[in-house]
Amino acid sequence: MSTPTEQLSAAGVSIWLDDLSRERITTGNLAALIADRNISGVTTNPTIFAGALSKGEAYAEQVASLAAAGASVDTAIFEITTDDVQAASDIFRPVFDATRGVDGRVSIEVSPDLAHDTAATVAQAKELWAKVDRPNALIKIPATKAGLPAITEVIAAGISVNVTLIFSLERYAAVIDAYLSGIERARAAGHDISTIQSVASFFVSRVDTEVDNRLKAIGTDAAKDLLSKAGIANARLAYELFEREFASDRARTLLEAGANVQRPLWASTGVKDPALPDTLYVTELVAAGTVNTMPEKTLEATFDHGEITGDTVTGNYGSAHEVFDRLAAVGVDFDDVTQVLEDEGVEKFIVSWHELQDTVAEALKASR
């Protein structure tokens, strides 16, 4: 009998772990998850690194060395996080090679403080790429309005990108355009476009949290009947958009020249409502050529009791459109929902980034 994670992989879904720490790397835990849980990549963000560093012990020696060298807080963060991403990338290198560069990917994010600064985002993305110096890295850039031209610029430079914090179909369409523009420019500049990979991280559970709060406030039976349906419907319509855009003449021309599709990635897949099945955002979003990045709790739940029944996306476009018609009918302003979520998403990562800075500052001070 194959395991649910094996079945999910066989259905064309790449399982990435939404977590990284030095302890996972040095204890062999990461390698074990590749072997036993079918993970084929890792995503990180400021919250994850803040959590890892707050535990501290695994980083003590490096922090002491950085403190002795007089490193600033931001330099220390840069060195510590890129070291972890380098080491994880090396562990995933066999996966990268076996999948011809599609998987085996490890993501590292530009500073959230730069989310509204295009030029600074581009500069730091290039700096991170050069420092990590691994072909299987992905540089995470948020899909803010300032992030869109940065995505194009960074991809044009031949750098692989994980676009994060996507909530709306409108913004997702702009992300695909930014990717294709970057590939067009990379090709014109003579880069080998077959080596450039990108994923577009579409957030799921946060959509349900925000929409459900609004539905509960509306309070009608029609509103209550829509609880916990918006996140999955939104993601399914994102896949419909992905299929349509990458079948366009523009995309086909690039694909025939060796470009890769920009895969949809389901992010924020940990279930926040305890009344819902803990594998909901995994089993209901199975589609070929996608990535599902999971916190370990969701990964273990999927391995233990996830019911993988094949493609649960492409046959459900009609019902997904219906959900959105009904949301509009009961008075949910989805444009406002997605703007609130983007603003909150950036702000949460900024808060985590500052917590990370505080944690490192304290560690450096203690070492000195």
Rank of each mutant, 00 (worst) to 15 (best):
T279R: 13
T220K: 12
R250I: 07
A233V: 02
P295N: 05
P274K: 02
P295V: 10
L215M: 04
V313T: 02
G270A: 09
R214D: 10
A251I: 05
N292W: 12
G219L: 12
E300W: 12
K224C: 06
A251H: 07
G306V: 06
N260G: 07
G270C: 06
A287E: 04
V291H: 08
A247W: 04
N260K: 05
A257E: 01
Y317K: 07
S201L: 00
G270E: 10
L299Y: 06
T312K: 04
L241W: 10
T309L: 12
N213M: 12
M294R: 09
V282K: 15
L255Q: 10
A200Y: 02
T209L: 06
G219H: 07
K272G: 04
L226M: 04
N234K: 05
R206V: 00
Q197R: 14
A267Q: 09
I193V: 05
T253L: 07
T209Q: 11
T298G: 09
E243P: 05
K272R: 03
L276G: 14
A251E: 07
I308H: 09
G231Q: 06
A288N: 13
A247D: 12
W266L: 08
L276S: 08
S248A: 13
P277F: 03
S268R: 04
I196N: 04
T293C: 09
V207R: 12
R250Y: 07
V261A: 01
T195S: 13
K297W: 11
Y239W: 15
K229N: 01
L226T: 05
Q197D: 06
V199G: 14
I308V: 14
L276P: 10
A233W: 01
A238N: 08
G231W: 02
T298E: 09
K216F: 07
S194E: 04
L255F: 02
T283W: 03
L237V: 01
L285V: 08
V199E: 14
L285R: 14
G270F: 06
K216A: 09
A222K: 10
G289N: 08
P264S: 03
D208S: 08
A288D: 11
S248Q: 13
Y239L: 07
D311H: 07
S194F: 00
L241K: 07
E307T: 15
H191T: 12
L226G: 01
V207N: 11
T269N: 13
A288L: 15
T314K: 06
P274R: 04
A259T: 06
L227K: 03
G231A: 10
F202V: 03
Y281R: 15
T209W: 04
G219F: 14
E284M: 02
N260W: 00
A275R: 00
G190K: 10
R244M: 12
F242K: 04
S201K: 00
K216W: 14
H305M: 06
